[in-house]
Design a protein around this nucleic acid. Structure first.
Lengths: 139, 139
DNA sequence: TTGCACTGGCGAATTTCTTCGCTACTATAA
DNA sequence: TTATAGTAGCGAAGAAATTCGCCAGTGCAA
């Protein structure tokens, strides 16, 4: 009669991770300052959230330092890929292509962005010259 | 001292929405059958979730029919865009481009997929021939 | 040394999410 | 008409997420 713990970082956890990714190891106070810039929240809450995240293994602590500093144990890239993979699976039937096509058509990108993406595709094509490829890999 | 209701459909809600998107108006029994294919769950739970979603306005009911039929009030596309927009904002600093580039580099797409995406980009370029565009629109 | 401000741990409160048991109702078949 | 099976509403149970107050400890400044 329960709910499974979410496999992905929650919203607040993500906010904290972003601070750690940007600034590297931080004290609770520093994390709190960054958070408070966007959001009105109590210092105790930040400390608690860091403790929860520590229990979950999402951050490490350097207890030698005073005040303690916290670091993320997951990289931004890992997290992005994991979350995005979930979205692709749950909302795009596993098709990364569908997602990309939709983003490109709707979130109007600048010409410069499109050019950059196009260059990347050409690069990928060049790196993997498999004319008869039929794999249609999906995440 | 509370938690804000999530602005996006939860996992279970998403599973139900997917059934409704695929099959159109369904009875609770039909939704349940589809859900039970993937997941072990009780019929009562499905009925309750449909009620919750009805209260949230995520589905409508045709009460004239017996058994009642349920339909999604949000389209798959709307939902995809909304969820993805959230991800872009929360995880990619609002840059759709970053997301696309990362998906393309990591989730290895097939040559056919890449070709299709490339065609889309060319099409977009052609449709919006604004050489001096400096907008760099972001979601 | 003593006081003061900051640090961090703990538990409680509160809301959301998900699950299910129980029950009353509805339609159909016997 | 009556028994039977499926439908749907309700409330409670219980995990997860987020918030904060309170307190003991720690280090620095006067």
């Amino acid at each position: 009669m329960a709910r499974p713990p979410s496999s992905q970082p929650t919203d607040v956890e993500l906010q904290i991770l972003r601070v750690l990714w940007e600034s590297g190891p931080c004290t609770a106070r520093e994390v709190h300052k960054s958070l408070a810039a966007d959001k009105q929240t109590n210092y105790s809450t930040t400390v608690k959230m860091l403790a929860v995240m520590f229990d979950k293994g999402m951050v490490t602590r350097d207890e030698a330092a005073y005040p303690m500093t916290f670091s993320a144990t997951v990289s931004q890239q890992q997290t992005q890929q994991s979350v995005l993979g979930d979205v692709i699976r749950k909302l795009y039937d596993g098709s990364a292509k569908s997602l990309v096509m939709q983003v490109l058509s709707s979130q109007e990108s600048s010409a410069a962005d499109l050019a950059e993406i196009r260059r990347l595709i050409e690069q990928l094509d060049a790196a993997r010259p498999v004319p008869g490829d039929r794999s249609k890999k999906r995440l």
